[in-house]
Design a protein around this nucleic acid. Structure first.
Lengths: 225, 225
DNA sequence: TAGATTGTTAATCGATTAACAATC
DNA sequence: TAGATTGTTAATCGATTAACAATC
């Protein structure tokens, strides 16, 4: 009965399935075959079936998948049917952007508090959540059963705060700081490195620009010849 | 001379190499072997050498890699030695967070303008950049040679704006809207789906929680026995 | 030269796709 | 029952790791 470890690639795709199923529900679609879904999502039907079968047989031969049912099942797998208490460290624009994103609460992510070092921010209320001094961090985490901390602070402070969070009992860090964090293996870190994302974009734009330039040069040559 | 296509996985790792090399430079380290770097980055030395050799031989046998040189070479590969003109569509918290991130300018990303539909935001200046009405979008893109647009708007408006951007000549979209975009193949889309990132985090936290619960049950059973 | 470390080829591993029997 | 579509096994493809000859 040893739980087979699910590959990272599969898990990474689940939220996208979830999103498409949500859209289908909104459209009033009741059932969908892996083939139809594959056309919408631009992946292979085979991959969809393989991915889902890592977690169980959610479909029915000759019928396909019941949209509502599959949607609920994926929610369970992702754990967004449970409640997660969350805090945000760093009440700058990025921290506030996260606090203001309403849909998180629908998915079970409850923002319990925000923290900052800036005295001008402390005491302010963002979306019903008070910004507190970072000094209160440990007490607050323990008293409010906080599992997840979003880290939207400069990279210089991130490792120290990460340590404090782990010691206080936080189980997961959603890391927006531009640095990697070292945590014990029973603590989860999910990185969102925006600058790296932008560099990947830059790489791809440049490749296209270069290609276009090259094809222009070719036409130039042809004209001369 | 057919340029071999570099795999997505390799490109995805480049910015991380770049970041670590930057840190090494700050520490005053002049050279580094693939093995030393592999220990720092927690990847295999083999992978580092393979990755880099996709773009050329940047090292020297018996010596390793010159940090400064490799740093500069990766910058060239990623195209962050060139200038990219960027606009931000959506001047909410997320848009302002991006505008305020100073380091982007160091990497050649120049924020030319911000756009919003909210009349109360239009006219405001964020980090020296004026927030404009979305009506001015097309004119502005053409007059300012804008290549990249960051899309920090609700998913309902995203496809329409994406179309307008493409028609106006934008070559890349940094998409923060919670939806996929359809664009011609010579236009690049880099997605940052924060909600999906948070769901992946949720999945991993739940697995750890479940595991801990199970091991607690086991000890419970042992006690009874 | 001897030692170190790359660049590169070969071996392994894992993920994706194809195929089809099972079954609704 | 016939048709459709899953669940699952097998085949393929690609990415990672290991090994080592080349070379500084």
């Amino acid at each position: 009965m040893a739980e087979k470890e699910i590959s990272k690639a599969v898990v990474a795709r689940l939220p996208r399935y979830y999103r498409y199923l949500g859209e289908l529900m909104e459209e009033g679609v009741e059932r969908i075959s892996s083939n139809e879904l594959s056309l919408r999502m631009k992946v292979t039907a085979s991959q969809i079936r393989q991915d889902l079968n890592n977690f169980g047989g959610f479909g029915q031969q000759g019928y396909g998948y019941n949209v509502k049912y599959l949607y609920a099942e994926i929610a369970k797998i992702l754990g967004i049917d449970r409640q997660h208490n969350l805090i945000i460290i760093g009440a700058g624009n990025l921290g506030q952007a996260i606090a203001n994103y309403a849909n998180f609460e629908k998915r079970g992510f409850l923002i319990k508090g925000m923290f900052d070092v800036n005295p001008r921010l402390i005491g302010l209320i963002v979306r019903g959540v008070e910004i507190r001094s970072i000094d209160e961090l440990e007490t607050f985490v323990k008293e409010n059963d906080v599992q997840i901390a979003a880290l939207t602070i400069p990279k210089t402070k991130a490792p120290e705060i990460a340590d404090r969070l782990v010691k206080a009992g936080v189980k997961a860090i959603w890391n927006f700081a531009h640095t990697d964090l070292n945590v014990p293996e029973d603590v989860v870190v999910e990185n969102v490195h925006l600058s790296e994302s932008l560099m990947r974009l830059s790489y791809r734009v440049c490749r296209i620009q270069d290609r276009e330039e090259k094809s222009r040069e070719k036409t130039q040559k042809k004209k001369k010849a």
